[in-house]
Nucleic acid binder design. Structure first.
Lengths: 339, 339
DNA sequence: TTGAAAGCGCTAACAC
DNA sequence: GTGTTAGCGCTTTCAA
């Protein structure tokens, strides 16, 4: 008789029957327990293979009380940050044989609550709440006792666990890199002053310049928008002012690109007369442009992985873990590689 | 007595007990069945609310035979295509109260097989296999009878269901748009000739030019790479040749950007003397550049949504569904909006 | 070493 | 209307 094709999957009972043993024995055999005769085990394994047996994770989870799965709540998935974070999460959990349940809220608190509920019904072992801006957010509601870790956007409650990017440290790294290249007159072209990421990166830049014994006037710390046009305009202004400038820390890669385009169009040679570094290390801009440029990689994958590991390793400890990035040096600060 | 906090979640039995009814009645009440007295229902609902009851989806799924969940297998999640596709999938399924199980294979067939197995054990209702290049791929192995739809990279087997981007149609749309703007001497600057996406978009461009009664020589259909530099170089070559040119269909947004930069640097006015259109409508390039440009949006979210709906609506019909995009017109073809 | 049986939490069929 | 019961597929005692 051919295998039963009416039901979608063979059950353990089917396997046991085919192998001529009881379900209990079949279970032990498949789970590699030692109290099964070798010959029996082999018979069971063969039967399972022939029937294409897939142990029902629902039944297992129901019994075990845990599901080897975590829920991930994101604001968006096509922005700049969430995709890489989720990749890091998935990598970390995949190694743990855990599954990722993904949801997208578009910032809607109602939807967030809905997904939290849905994840709880599915008995996920934990929940990651991934933000898309580096600003703190109120803790999610309706959380029961499911463990939660906030990622990128920290929770405003000190009782919660969060993993975020350390923008102050990143700013320091950027400035340090320029100073190491011998630059002495460094400007910071930041994003909007009301955004904490823009301010933090600026603060780090400033701190590091001062730490190197160089001076920095308020005129060298500028705020604008996250756009190319701002980088372009700002460089125009600085050059027109006649003030000395040999290094630019740009608040993000878009600003950096605008700055570089302007420098080149004004005939300023890069990196000799002026070096430029951005943030985020977005490959489409920093790497794939006609003029590749240096950038501080915020290591979003590592941030995601770290959050996932914190979530799945006992109860997450309250507090914020800030993750620094690292500098990826390219033409705009170190010139073309020697051949 | 305070509610039991030792176990993680209240069960239906707890709720029934608290409401002074049997589990059967509690179940009916919570599921809105009509054969329950109103007063009883309200008592049950109140008890459920007080105990923060979350019906165990594992138990439900075990009984029902379906889990309201689908597995999504992607190659990557930080590339150009997968994120938007997954967003479309999630939106479509969320409306259906279904969950998305996400996995990333990095193109490793072993990992793909592993995730398929894992999804089958979790009894997902279907699987979406999302590619990251528009080339066909061999069907996945070990699939049992779980329904599958391939997305973006179609399956090479005609028995499978696939939803892909229609690059030929997209090429036609791009050329049509330039022709509508009165352009008569159109070039195509494509990606690598060995890639079907590059060829398809070129073919569509060519077809539409001919359909409009214009001529197109092989010299006007050029292939290179997907990079800005190629757009920059190609435009240089065309201008140097002195051949007439007033429209450029660029194989992707990076090429378009390079082409635009070169045209501007050579003093060619856009869009009057030459109009430019790209593909993919990648906001960081097409929209956020200093010079925004037109692009054919491949509607990846719609593709993902369509695939999800096909998957969850009965058995997917074999064959390939090709999804055309639409033109997003910006400065590079229609100039600045009148004020 | 193996088998029988209880039970995870829920729904649906059948009594009352 | 409401209660009782039989499983869904699995793991885990406890006997044999």
């Amino acid at each position: 008789m051919p295998p039963d094709t009416t039901r979608s999957h063979a059950t353990l009972t089917d396997v046991a029957k085919a192998a001529g043993v009881s379900v209990g024995t079949a279970s032990k055999a498949l789970n590699g327990r030692f109290d099964v005769k070798r010959e029996t085990r082999e018979r069971v394994l063969r039967a399972a293979d022939e029937l294409n047996f897939r142990p029902n994770a629902l039944a297992r989870g129901l019994l075990a009380g845990r599901t080897q799965s975590v829920g991930v709540i994101t604001n968006d998935l096509d922005g700049r940050f969430a995709p890489k974070i989720v990749v890091g999460v998935e990598n970390a959990l995949g190694a743990d044989q855990s599954s990722v349940l993904l949801s997208i809220t578009r910032g809607d608190p109602e939807l967030e609550a809905h997904y939290i509920r849905s994840f709880q019904e599915r008995r996920v072992d934990g929940i990651l709440i991934v933000g898309n801006i580096p600003e703190s957010r109120p803790p999610a509601r309706g959380l029961d006792r499911t463990p939660v870790v906030y990622v990128f956007s920290p929770s405003s409650s000190p009782e919660d666990a969060s993993v975020i990017a350390d923008n102050v440290a990143a700013g320091r790294l950027a400035a340090e890199h320029l100073i190491e290249q011998g630059k002495r007159h460094i400007y910071y072209l930041g994003g909007p002053p009301e955004e904490v990421a823009a301010r933090d990166r600026g603060q780090g830049t400033r701190e590091q310049i001062l730490a190197a014994g160089l001076s920095v006037s308020p005129l060298q710390i500028l705020y604008g928008t996250w756009a190319e046009q701002w980088g372009w305009d700002a460089v125009g202004g600085i050059l027109a002012s006649g003030a000395p400038v040999d290094g630019l820390v740009c608040g993000d890669d878009q600003i950096a690109r605008g700055a570089i385009d302007r420098l080149l169009s004004e005939g300023v040679s890069i990196p000799d007369r002026a070096a430029v570094i951005g943030f985020d290390n977005w490959w489409i801009l920093a790497q794939n442009s006609r003029h590749p440029f240096s950038s501080v990689d915020m290591e979003l994958e590592a941030i995601g992985g770290r959050a996932a590991r914190i979530l799945t390793t006992g109860a997450p400890a309250p507090g914020v873990v800030a993750h620094p990035g690292h500098v990826v040096a390219r033409w705009s600060t170190i010139g073309d590689a020697p051949r």
